[in-house]
Nucleic acid binder design. Structure first.
Lengths: 332, 332
DNA sequence: GATTAAAATGTAATCGTTTTCAAAAAATGT
DNA sequence: ACATTTTTTGAAAACGATTACATTTTAATC
């Protein structure tokens, strides 16, 4: 069943039916009603492929993230999906596993398959060239992670400040020897590190190169790193991690050695995950507005789709420092 | 740039280029090579909309789950996505929030937009009629949850047995008064309840109606229910929950009242989540093969797409009882 | 009521592929 | 070398919507 059938049944031309169905132009109220009745009665659904072929715009957007299994990206993706659904778009989910090749492949695919737009949390290695090329051929919003030197819509949190505040809070508790574990494949890792260093510097505290590491976002990497820290002659008094994966590994390492937190080693991390509030001691975190990040990105994307010429903008959402037990403040 | 351009550049007809690009028919090796060179040189990518319009098959599949934020569905979806990617398909992610209306809307959409297939974890309310109609018009695999009386591919775990074994394990520790919290909107909740009851019956144990509830899969629902249990004159000696959401609420309720687990009340649940192994006491769980479930479903889907006539089958994957501290066994 | 402007509708071309059918070329058999 | 089969290619018709343009209908104005 197609447009023609509907047109025939309603006694009008395909053009009119099309106009009604895509909510365009002016159609007389009674013909519109008549057509809608027929459409409803025959339970007709337009063929998206045909529609997208002729109109040169599709009704899906791509969402490219490292791994949907990370709670952060899961919430973010819900934000994107909910807004997309409101706008009658579908979202295609792509997991890159931080692998630039996969990322590039997916980006190519979105371009090739005429996605209406892409929301992407890029790896560090994503070059401006490819970003430019993608952004030129389909609406693009960069989310969570920054991409340098390209004029493109972005929605981010202020990682430097958040890391600075978290670190300063730690220092406020009197810890002086801080270890920091940061992601290696994202701009967020870099920025959080910068905030960390900045806070130490502000406090006139030296940073020990040995205790500051950039790691792949995997539990085992953090577990191993913290285990090694604990074997040092002068182990750190506090550990900060830059994302939920590293946090899990780090926390396990502390527990495996039966280190009491925060008494022997204090702990805090970026990312609220299901266990940070559940565990004892509860873990101080920088809670990121993951869902809102996704919503905002999707909203911006649809604005850009509607008007490709609008000036690009960068939106920075604020994150929240949630102080719990693991950094020494027992108020909860 | 389109097929015609490529054809012209290669000095052949569009038909031949099409044949090469869709890997069909016989094309002489040297013309194929020549065409591929041109395609590569001009960096051409076929238009999927046109392709899908003409050939009446698309290159995406739908994945319909309750909520991607649940770790179970997140893993499952990774399984689906990884297999889809291997087969050059994209996956469209749909969250129903257990809302039958949304579910139906998405199912309709997949049908209407000519998805090549759908993997769906249906709500209880999903009728056979709609399932039948969807399965007739696009390849369908039902996952995790059963849908009654319809001849369709399914991949499941044996919920009855798993719940039976978990419950029996509890009983083996000497607890006699067991509470059970089950999901209300899925067949899994029903089946797990059945296994629970069965185990009690096998042990000649009465089941207290008051302690067996079907709840929406939300933390607060379980929190409230367990809080009420604890106010009873004869509170349960053990609590079992049917999914990760309920588990979180139940566990919090126990902790809020400073109930010691497992001494005062033992605890166990379906679903391995990030905190079950992290927390102390660690939580005994039925670990479901979520990723494998997704993989298997996707593989079955592609087989069905390839051959719509093949007999339907039901695959049951086994789950694993992971015994930890929360049910009284301190071996870990 | 005639004239004109505006709104509603229709006709037919078009989007970029795949696919059918027929023709040409190559391979095979005698 | 010719007839026959098989393989490779091309021309042109789909697929099902949108849309530019032409036409008809309605409304507005005098």
């Amino acid at each position: 069943m197609n447009l023609k059938d509907i047109a025939k049944a309603a006694g009008v031309s395909t053009a009119t039916v099309s106009r009604v169905l895509s909510g365009k132009d002016n159609v007389r109220a009674d013909t519109r009603k008549r057509i809608l009745e027929v459409v409803d009665r025959m339970n007709y659904r337009p063929n998206r492929a045909a529609r997208s072929l002729r109109s040169r715009r599709s009704s899906f957007i791509g969402l490219i993230v490292a791994d949907i299994q990370s709670p952060f990206f899961a919430s973010l993706s819900r934000g994107v999906e909910d807004i997309a659904q409101k706008n009658d778009y579908s979202v295609i989910l792509c997991n890159t596993d931080e692998n630039p090749k996969k990322e590039r492949m997916y980006l190519d695919m979105m371009q090739g398959e005429n996605a209406a737009g892409v929301v992407v949390a890029p790896t560090l290695r994503l070059s401006k060239t490819i970003t430019r090329s993608v952004a030129d051929s389909c609406a693009t919003v960069v989310i969570d992670r920054r991409v340098q030197g390209v004029d493109v819509d972005m929605v981010l949190i202020d990682n430097v400040t958040a890391a600075h505040d978290l670190t300063a809070h730690m220092l406020g508790h009197g810890y002086t020897r801080l270890a920091g574990l940061f992601g290696e494949s994202s701009s967020t890792g870099l920025e959080r590190r910068a905030g960390f260093e900045q806070a130490l510097q502000d406090a006139g505290m030296p940073s020990d190169e040995q205790l500051v590491l950039h790691l792949p976002a995997r539990e085992d990497a953090a577990h191993e790193a913290v285990s090694r820290f604990l074997e040092l002659d002068n182990p750190p008094e506090a550990v900060i991690t830059s994302n939920g994966m590293l946090a899990a590994g780090a926390f396990r390492a502390l527990r495996d050695r039966e280190i009491s937190v925060p008494e022997e080693v204090a702990f805090a991390t970026f990312d609220e995950t299901p266990w940070t509030a559940m565990i004892r001691p509860s873990v101080t975190v920088v809670r990121q507005p993951a869902y809102a990040l996704g919503q905002t990105a999707a909203e911006m994307l649809f604005k850009r789709i509607a008007d490709p010429e609008r000036p690009t903008r960068q939106v920075v959402l604020s994150s929240e420092l949630v102080i719990r037990q693991s950094c020494g403040n027992h108020k909860e």
